[in-house]
Write a protein that binds this DNA or RNA. Structure first.
Lengths: 365, 365
DNA sequence: CTGTTAGCGCCTTCAT
DNA sequence: ATGAAGGCGCTAACAG
């Protein structure tokens, strides 16, 4: 493997000159430059990234710490990051986090020296005990999708999930629903995700504003996932006084709700309205009403912000808020009139123990 | 930022000694080691990865070149890679490729010096002109999901997609279908993906074995994607003599087929059988019959293989073949008897120009 | 304009 | 068991 020294010899020039043409400095005569270039291509030489990193004191890479990076919402964010990094000089290294232990490892090791020039942390909202690490970090940090009062000291790109939660709930209220369920991740879980909590707040705010009581049995929490949401939805929908509408904290969870409705023989949106959150690509396929957030853009802005911050650190932490938008499709409609005075519904329990494979059937209202 | 030299001074030892305890060499007395360790923790010292890389001549990172890394099948593979790398000392850097130009850039730059100790290339089947780069690479290369005769010289992890294509088609034939369509990516496209082609071969083989004619109008090709598959499916299903079953080259494309069936008022599986490929998580949700391939495992094996190859290069290229499996769910069934002698079906063209949002309804046979 | 020199931080001989 | 010295490949500052 040829080094810069070999090139210098071959071209009959000094070592520094080669370096200069490599970094296209203007301080090289055209003829020398040509000679060096020739030698470079003769030797099939490529500069060593590692050596250059050491010399420059930069790693030329950006690290992303991300939980569960196969979740569609997460990959969209990553795509935004990758896209903007691709047109920069930074490499992208990914640390996927699926356990609390690994999250802590990553926070400790990655943010420290030499692994990256900057870090983007997705959806992981640092605990108070992590803050010291992040507030005066050795390398710049940008948080994406982590909203927390105490995070005001950090650079971040967020969405107003409380407002999103309000928008979703408001939509259902305006349709005339009075029995509105909410299905989400555990509000308290070890990763300290904030989105379910914030959307929950918005949900509560609208209920209150509309004079509707909050009922804890209308709130199904569980691990993130379609299947878990399915189970929670079944619980809500078999309640004596079951909701006529369900707000799911993500499109994935909304899919579980739709599945539950199907298996219980409920028509969507006639018998049950469902609204999701995210506007994944699949939401359109399912004709799912949802709250759109700009996932890909959040990654893009996060990466752009990080690069800015690396280039010149801001005095004050920067916070960028991305908008949300209600997208009305086919899974929400006014409740049936008779739902007003319905008693306890009875469903064939057989379909629960042994849910029929698929018998889906809903129409736009 | 403290260096090894600071630690040495603080501990009152030589620079080499610190290095030794860092790499837990046995050639250090217990007392000295303790003293050094103390200094390290006092100074909150961490060794510089970059310097160590340069000195060791290793990058301690593995690069993955991957097209369209937001596709679910791809992220599953990536997850397998990430998981096995997480428990190793390697970092993972990702090069996402969405254009041919970028693919070529990546092949050129990444495989060359110093960016990584090894490369995993997913689903990108190198052209003959790329082979020289890969056959005597500067760093080890493992291909995942790239099957090609001329690739026998490379390490790789593959699935027998021809067999998978056969299995899918065979299943439909056994159910009694005689009019079987195939919807896939373009068989020839710039990225040189092999999967659609191989599955196509399997499809053809079974048709022939079953004495069924191949009809080119039964093969819909287009760019990868649900929407594109939808449009192709509509074409097939509005043919005068439309197929009673469709084999889609991926679950994503199968979703487009299901959507088309829905919009055309066809019941699945009564009027139309659909089989996909991959067994994505969503396949179960959709009760989609499909060919399962072990996506996550393919990534895992790829990473493991690469690490092996880095540690000691094999004499002969290693090829590992992963199995496929037919998973029968609710979208395939025998054709209706009356389909045998059906003429040209007539569908309301309105539903094509303005497809109804969702009116899905199928049952297991 | 260009050659030379001194690091960047660490690992690894080589003496001791 | 340990300290000193040389080198990994490159950049940047300094003379010329």
């Amino acid at each position: 493997m040829p080094t810069i020294r070999d090139v210098a010899e071959k071209a009959g020039v000094g070592l520094g000159t080669v370096s200069r043409v490599l970094n296209d400095s203007p301080l090289v005569s055209d003829t020398t430059r040509r000679r060096v270039l020739q030698a470079i291509s003769d030797l099939n030489y490529t500069p060593s990234l590692t050596a250059r990193r050491l010399s420059l004191g930069k790693t030329m890479t950006i690290a992303v710490i991300v939980p569960f990076f196969t979740r569609p919402s997460v990959t969209e964010r990553l795509r935004g990051i990758e896209n903007t990094l691709a047109s920069s000089d930074y490499d992208l290294t990914i640390y996927n986090v699926e356990t609390v232990k690994r999250r802590d490892e990553c926070l400790q090791h990655v943010i420290r020296h030499e692994r990256a020039d900057g870090v983007i942390i997705i959806s992981l909202s640092p605990r108070d005990e992590d803050l010291p690490l992040l507030v005066n970090p050795e390398i710049p940090v940008v948080l994406v999708d982590a909203n927390h009062a105490s995070l005001a000291v950090l650079n971040r790109v967020v969405v107003d999930d409380v407002a999103g939660g309000r928008a979703a709930t408001q939509h259902l209220v305006e349709l005339g629903h009075q029995h509105i369920g909410y299905i989400s991740d555990y509000l308290e879980e070890p990763f300290n995700f904030t989105s379910s909590r914030d959307r929950y707040l918005g949900y509560r705010q609208i209920l209150e504003a509309a004079g509707l009581p909050f009922r804890s049995e209308y709130h199904g929490q569980g691990p993130h996932g379609r299947q878990e949401a399915y189970e929670n939805a079944v619980k809500l929908l078999t309640l004596p006084d079951s909701p006529t509408a369900i707000f799911a904290a993500s499109d994935t969870q909304a899919m579980g709700v739709l599945q539950a409705a199907r298996d219980l023989g409920l028509q969507v949106p006639e018998d049950l309205s469902v609204i999701g959150y995210d506007d994944l690509e699949i939401a359109e396929y399912l004709s799912l009403t949802t709250i759109r957030q700009l996932l890909c853009l959040s990654g893009q802005r996060g990466a752009e912000l990080l690069i800015e911050v690396i280039q010149d650190p801001p005095k004050e932490p920067i916070c960028e808020v991305l908008p949300t938008e209600l997208v009305v499709r086919g899974t929400t409609a006014p409740p049936k009139p008779e739902d007003e005075n319905r008693g306890s519904a009875v469903y064939p329990p057989a379909s629960l123990d042994n849910p029929s494979p698929i018998s889906q059937s809903w129409h736009t209202g």
